[in-house]
Design a protein around this nucleic acid. Structure first.
Length: 486
DNA sequence: ATGTAC
């Protein structure tokens, strides 16, 4: 270790090597904590609670190696958004706060064989038709009214495909093939199910969006060819989660775990990290309920994919198959999952908590579908609505550095309240259209202000750290064409 | 993120 340090508010980080910074283990910390970032990104987390929350995480029983903060990390509920914590699945614990309220918030990319030329002039028709056919905003609205929630919780995208909202190939291009088999609908409260019943196929609000984009840059020709991506291609990005259902699951189990496992809670530096010991009834139940909410979120994105395909069919008067509207991949950003990782030469089953972090498995991992087993997993990292997004490929160092994870987005720079003081939604939309030919339509102007490009970090910085560390390699970059949101 | 609050 070098002598170099970074003074981040109340914390001093030691420089391990390029882009790797460490909070040394001290006091009741069970392991050190690591931040993967350049100095500009570190500066941006020096004044909030990100580092305090990261350090708190190192107190969780069973934590392995390090608590890790990705380059896009910022403060969240109890645990940083952009945090990764791997906890022993036998002797450790599971923590709802380290998964987040929006269980399986995530993103999928739908490819097309259209080019930017094909859709120029159609942007507003596309925008309006997408907005009319994809429910957005807080509260109700759904593609499927009175949906069979129990079956969705149990079977995920398999249900959607059987019901005619997708094809078999969609399953093969979704993390875990669109189904978490450990899902246990019986552990999901009636209240959560009631909230989900009329939200199956809805975008929601906040940072969630559906964006038509064009591919502007290819960085790795061979990988891009395997992924079916090329310059000037039109793609669609769908970013949303498990809506009120997942939120209710988190709320229900946080309260229950706080009460039932008060002894463990009292050993932790923050109530927001409440955790259930591995093997306890509540750990089992929360895992089953979280997996069920995961299935709901995947189905949600599948139903929105179906609507998107139909909109494209009407606007361009061709079938979606003719337009090549196949899934590239669907990745989770908020999840805890049992995975086997090698620690100190031994294979251990761990609850890998990724909150605002993406699984980024390299070639060879058995979990990857056949299409990506030789090349590595596609990772999709959305930027702000003014910046576009990146497609990465799980890097060969991800398993040793981050339990197979990388960043999930640009990361917020300021709170929603602060954003609303700085920006006015209508002005943001006018600027994007006039200066960048980006068409935005939203349920609420306030949401546009909260999500203005200026409230986000530079996604280029985030991705360059991932690429330099070899945890997620850049493959392609996209730029927005039109965007709908809540 | 969220029927934006217990």
């Amino acid at each position: 270790m070098t002598e170099k340090t970074f003074d981040a508010g109340d914390f001093t980080l030691e420089h391990v090597r390029e882009h790797v910074w460490e909070l040394p283990q001290e006091g009741d910390m069970r392991v050190p904590a690591r931040v993967l970032a350049n100095e500009a990104l570190l500066e941006q987390i020096s004044d909030d609670k990100t580092l305090e929350q990261l350090r708190n995480t190192t107190h969780l029983p069973g934590i392995q190696e390090y608590a890790i903060c990705m380059p896009d990390g910022h403060q969240g509920y109890g645990f940083p958004v952009g945090g990764v914590a791997a906890l022993d699945a036998e002797d450790g614990c599971i923590s709802p706060g380290a998964v987040g309220y929006d269980i399986n918030c995530g993103v999928r990319m739908v490819k097309t064989n259209l080019t930017y030329d094909d859709i120029q002039g159609n942007e507003e028709e596309l925008l309006n038709s997408l907005f009319a056919n994809v429910p957005t905003g807080l509260g109700g609205g759904a593609v499927v009214d009175n949906a069979p929630v129990e079956e969705i919780l149990d079977r995920g995208v398999e249900w959607a495909v059987e019901a005619g909202y997708g094809v078999e190939a969609d399953l093969a291009h979704c993390e875990d093939e669109g189904v978490r088999p450990e899902a246990d609908p019986q552990t999901v409260s009636q209240k959560a199910k009631d909230r989900g019943r009329n939200q199956a196929g809805s975008l929601g609000s906040g940072n969630h969006f559906l964006e038509v984009q064009r591919v502007t840059d290819i960085y790795r020709d061979d990988v891009a060819a395997e992924f079916g991506l090329r310059e000037d291609q039109i793609v669609v990005l769908i970013h949303c989660g498990s809506r009120g259902l997942g939120h209710q699951v988190c709320t229900d189990y946080l309260r229950d775990i706080e009460q039932t496992h008060e002894g463990l809670l009292n050993q932790l530096p923050s109530k927001e990290l409440a955790a259930a010991p591995a093997g306890s009834q509540l750990a089992e139940d929360y895992y089953g309920a979280m997996c069920a909410a995961i299935n709901f979120a995947w189905t949600n994105r599948q139903l929105i994919t179906h609507q998107t395909r139909q909109v494209f069919e009407r606007v361009f008067d061709r079938s979606w198959e003719e337009m090549g509207m196949e899934l590239l991949y669907d990745v989770s950003h908020n999840i805890a999952k049992k995975e086997v990782h090698t620690v100190d030469g031994e294979d251990n089953e761990l609850f890998v908590h990724r909150k605002g972090a993406t699984r980024a498995f390299p070639a060879g991992r058995p979990e990857l579908p056949p299409a990506y087993r030789e090349v590595g997993q596609p990772v999709i990292i959305p930027g702000s609505m003014g910046a576009g997004s990146y497609v990465l490929r799980g890097g060969e160092h991800s398993l040793e550095e981050t339990f197979g994870s990388t960043a999930h987005g640009a990361g917020r720079l300021m709170s929603r309240t602060q954003a609303k003081n700085e920006y006015w939604g209508e002005d943001v939309m006018d600027d994007l259209r006039e200066d960048n030919q980006i068409y935005v339509k939203a349920e609420s102007g306030a949401t546009v202000a909260e999500e203005a490009p200026g409230v986000y970090k530079d996604v280029d910085d985030v991705v360059s750290v991932s690429d330099a560390l070899g945890i997620g390699d850049t493959v392609a970059r996209t730029y927005p064409v039109c965007n709908i949101k809540g």
